[in-house]
Amino acid sequence: MRYSLTNIVWYSEKRKNILLLLKEGPRDIDRIKTSLNETSRSIMPQIKRLLQKKLIVQNGESYCLSEIGELIVDSIEPLLDTMRVIEENKEFWITRDLSFLPQHLFNRLGELGHYLLVEPDLNRMFELPREFKNNILKSKQVSSFISYVHPQIPSLYIELVDKGVHLSLFMTKTAFEKLKSEYPKEMKKILSSSGVELFLCNENIPLPTLAVTGWFTYLCFLNVEGRYDHWDIISFDESALLWGNELIEHYRSKSERIHFS
């Protein structure tokens, strides 16, 4: 009987794991057994199926992915990442408003990778989350987008400016007006610093906060009721940085740079 690729790849966790393992490079049977914690008896039938389907090839003692095997692994990886991102915190994702994301970045949410969900702490609801504050102060370069004004944001910006951090600030006009009228002194200081660029976004984007630094991406979404419920995401994965930077670039294209003299 001929098995379809769907059957070969998705109906057996073992086969899928062999394919993913071989993506790292050729392996002999002993290394495959050890890596996947299997016995010859449990793994050989699966290897045979993969050989028959031409997804892997055998070179002497070792097995490696064939070209179409590589192609399959390449194409399933984004889906596996996406499913993992969702399944790790399904309730969170079901209740998020993701409609503001441009299509290509929405499709690639799996690139957030191994993210952490930052839970709201009722006792510290009006402080910036520690995960955010501690990490951002260790950055050399910060790009951020905000559409809402956290009361501690101006003092955080000042702290960053004082440390000589390069800041690219993207914000909605509403957020900017609020900052200017409620924190005039702080804003004056921030905007007169040499390492600060300000961009005002023409659209009202329902994304409370996005911050991308050289080493992490931080995201606050609204929930489906349009409220900010203090559940945030932080990811240190390389792919999340690329994703976050693309989102910043997307907002750059919708923004106007404001110059201060």
């Binding site: 984004p78 499913m83 969702i86 994702w93 079901i94 408003d97 993701l98 929405f106 499709n107 949410l109």
Partner: peptide, 12 residues
């Protein structure tokens, strides 16, 4: 499709 439904389907 729900939003996560669309996300998964776009990738599948």
């Amino acid at each position: 499709l729900s939003s996560i439904g669309r996300l998964v389907t776009e990738n599948a």
